[in-house]
Amino acid sequence: MNTLIAIVGLVAGVPILLSSFAEIPVISDLAQEFQRWGIILAGFSTFLGVLNLTFVNANALRRRKHTGQVIEPVVVLVMLWGLVLTGVFFGQTHPAYDFVFENVLKPLSASGFSMLAFFIASAAYRAFRVRNVDAAILLVCGCLVMLANIPFGEQLWSDLPFVSDWIMRIINGSAMKGIVIGGAIGAIATALKVLVGVERSHLRG
């Protein structure tokens, strides 16, 4: 079975790989067709995801130890299936669908994003405690970059923006580029391993 999956991966992967090098009519058409199949498979997996969400919350409802544990799974199930049924029977332009999207999903997402400010403050506090030389360098560089980004930073020291730019562009930039190049080589090697069937641990556990 695993060999069959590896062969399917190779057959589907090679045309997509070749079509990224050159526009070859037959190969490019084949690659597009495989990508379309990928979209169809993703559609099926979304349905599986919805089923999983339903089972997990139905299970939580069944195993509840006190009434307080009822609220969360009930809200998830009602919102999930309410929106699915509204979308299927009345379309995505139905006012109820829009209402939930505009008045529930958007504000919740914005709240989630805004909470990051507090998480950053807490992580910065942990990172900036001077425990060793590395942490001390991080603290000094972090303070210089932060000071340069506030309105009166330049008034404290006129060269601060230059120093901050040098830290970000030269020191930080070169380290990040090294990570990006290493990551790209690693991604290519992983893709190559999967394509030729060397890597199969994700198929058999």
């Binding site: 090294g178 290493g182 990551g183 080589i185 690693g186 190559l192």
Partner: peptide, 28 residues
């Protein structure tokens, strides 16, 4: 970065996996 991609190969003793790590170093 690439340690994430190298992890699987490091965990393995399979020659094919080890050779991909060696390839990454040469390419780098």
């Amino acid at each position: 970065g690439e340690e994430l991609f190298a992890a699987a190969a490091v965990l393995s003793v399979d020659p094919a996996q080890v050779s991909t790590l060696m390839m990454q170093d040469i390419i780098r």
